[in-house]
Design a protein around this nucleic acid. Structure first.
Lengths: 354, 354
DNA sequence: CTGGCCATTTAAAACGTTATAAATTCAGCA
DNA sequence: TGCTGAATTTATAACGTTTTAAATGGCCAG
């Protein structure tokens, strides 16, 4: 096939650069085409004849060609990498891993790779974002623990760098997000407690910084106001607190006056810790008090079937975030299409006995 | 500084490629040196005069230069990336995230980045390894869930590709690993049950495939044989089983003849599920039965202080794995230096009441 | 048979870095 | 003066890809 009239440096220099991976050049030599043509053919450029495209693709498959990402990246400036900012607090109960698993699913079959930027130690989140954008280490970013006036969102919006947050902000510039409707969750969960006859629900909410904390409280407050019952928002602990701290706080609260008779827990660990604290006080779940909790793994309901739960599917969330980010990178500019509010699945039993 | 006799295309073409990141060329133009010299200076090559090195470094710092990783990678073939193979089973209780956090710590300050290759869906582990090595996507690999004749280890050893496993193999070619001494853990834990007066401990062990499962069983068997007491290895479930399955199996076992009176649990979820199953049968931990378990988070002891635990620090493990891998990549060929067996910290109380 | 136009293919340059080999400078010495 | 060699710097060529601009060839109208 190769034109023998041309200088024949085929055998020694090209063929398969130092016995290693096949490159475009390898294919070019086999087919007798120019490297440019091969490149074009593989990217299905319309200017290359259909027949040529087919042949090139066949040869590529046969010799197991796959493009060198470093070279592509150098040339195009695109990294084909999606970065996930991971926070140390996300270790618990596989939060991080579930999300990542979902993102990975969304990235399946695309040219994109998932790379996790653990934000452990030293750097603040904003610094990490700075670093990543400055060094063009990814084409898009995903992160959670979103704050109402999140500085990361500000920075990335300013730079025009594609990203998706897990959680909303209150910033005026709209941006892509995937969020769970924590208001509805919290509202329904609290209503459920009241429907069970409880008259003083307590909320264990998220850390003050985060947007979802507000949503949880809002849902909770709406439900207790509607019912006109007493309530309490437990101070001194939050969903990020270690289980031991939550346990102790709950226990302590019951030695004081006018304790709550039920709990709305934003997480599984929190629910388990609460049960332990209460149990230490000699109180039994389902008898002296009730709990409704958000569940993100399958642990809680297996261990404590007494706790009523509403499930949040973090893997699905990750998948959505991946999809949304790909759309954003792909040029989707209608941000409203890139904002997903996932609805809690309220168990049928919740409605029945209300 | 720049020699004015040379063609002055400084202003338009170079200066800062399309107003973006500074490159070696930017520094070269500022200092009036050649690109090569700058490159060398920044890598502290001895052939460059000390004065020049200093000046180049200063300029680089001033304009905030950082090398383009894609270009480095293309040129050198090194990726400066460490890959972690993550298994869907590792979602539980932040296993994956702890390990990663540790690796990230070890990589701090090096040129290496951590990239997680989630092995969810389709591909088998070996296929993923194939893919990664073929496409030179990393300079080194870390993975867990090691099997006695692990095909990934075989493949990577053959290729001479640097890697570290979490867990040992039984292959004849030695390779770098970091492992927890599960034999000692299991042996001590079981002895503890016996010391508490239990006469028929049951083991809930790992999935049959993995090396550590053998170690757990060996330790368990050694302890029960020494004591000459009855024992049982629970069938039908393992540490990978969902909590609900373990709970059900334990419950069922107690409806049958001659049930065990204590449990050696390889994990926290397993311990919690066991307690739930037993509790369903009306049996109380610490009274009718005992449990010793391995703990990798801080959940179990906060929730169920009755369970005696031995702690395995996965973050430290990750850090060790990262360090070992860096050494391996750095050329350390004495494999015995790259094999770490971490000793369980046996709580003082274990010895006291024996 | 010339010119022009289309479809297809191609050569050359570039991305930012490093490796190789060569060039330059300057001191010391014959 | 000219040579040798050490110390320092430099030009050039890669790495594998994509982009830009240009070339090739075939076909048809004039």
């Amino acid at each position: 096939m190769a034109d023998p009239s041309k200088p024949v440096h085929a055998e020694d220099s090209g063929s398969a650069a130092k016995r290693g991976k096949p490159t475009l050049r390898t294919i070019a030599e086999i087919t007798g085409l120019a490297v440019t043509t091969v490149s074009r053919a593989l990217s299905d450029a319309p200017q290359i004849s259909l027949e040529t495209r087919k042949r090139v693709r066949e040869v590529a498959d046969e010799i197991g060609y796959s493009p060198d990402r470093a070279a592509q990246r150098l040339k195009t400036g695109r990294t084909n990498v999606i970065g996930v900012l991971l926070d140390p607090h996300e270790e618990i109960l596989g939060y991080g891993t579930s999300i990542m698993s979902g993102i990975a699913k969304a990235l399946q079959g695309t040219a994109y790779h998932l790379i996790v930027m653990p934000n452990f130690l030293n750097k603040t989140n904003v610094e990490a974002v700075h670093y990543i954008t400055r060094n063009a280490m990814a084409d898009g970013l995903i992160f959670s623990r979103t704050e109402p006036l999140d500085p990361r969102v500000r920075l990335l919006s300013d730079l025009g760098f594609p990203f998706v947050t897990h959680g909303r902000t209150e910033l005026s510039t709209p941006h892509p997000y995937v969020d769970y409707d924590n208001f509805t969750f919290s509202y329904q969960a609290t209503k459920r407690l009241i429907a069970k006859g409880r008259r003083k629900p307590a909320l264990i909410s998220g850390p003050a910084d985060f947007t979802f904390t507000g949503h949880l409280q809002h849902g909770f407050m709406t439900a207790v106001r509607e019912a006109g019952c007493a309530y309490e928002i437990l101070t001194g602990i939050d969903l990020d607190s270690p289980a031991g701290a939550i346990r102790d706080r709950v226990r302590q609260r019951y030695t004081e006056a006018d304790p709550p008779d039920s709990f709305m827990c934003g997480g599984e660990v929190c629910a388990l810790a609460t049960i332990t604290g209460m149990s230490d006080c000699g109180l039994t779940l389902g008898r002296e008090y009730d709990i409704v909790a958000k569940q993100t793994s399958h642990l809680l309901s297996a261990i404590q079937p007494q706790v009523e739960t509403i499930y949040e599917d973090l893997t699905a969330t990750g998948e959505d975030m991946g999809r949304v980010l790909l759309q954003k990178i792909g040029g989707e500019s209608d941000t409203s299409k890139l904002q997903l509010l996932l609805c809690p699945q309220i168990p049928a039993s919740f409605g029945s006995s209300a």
